[in-house]
Amino acid sequence: MNELLNMGEHQTFIWLSYGITFLVIVALGIASWRRHVRLKTLIANLKAKKKEEQK
């Protein structure tokens, strides 16, 4: 494991760039996904409400 993580003298740069890049990519991905899910349930609820009102 240690051998795997060891990237030589410039390892800080390598790990920092990979770390921040994937942090940002994952964060943006989760944010987009959550907004999508939130709005999907919101509109489903609204539609169900409307149907009930029409009954």
């Binding site: 987009s32 709005l39 999907k40 609204l46």
Partner: peptide
């Protein structure tokens, strides 16, 4: 994902 969310937001 973002397009679907945007569409739903407009529908709402």
């Amino acid at each position: 994902w973002r397009m679907k969310a945007e569409l739903n937001e407009r529908k709402i």
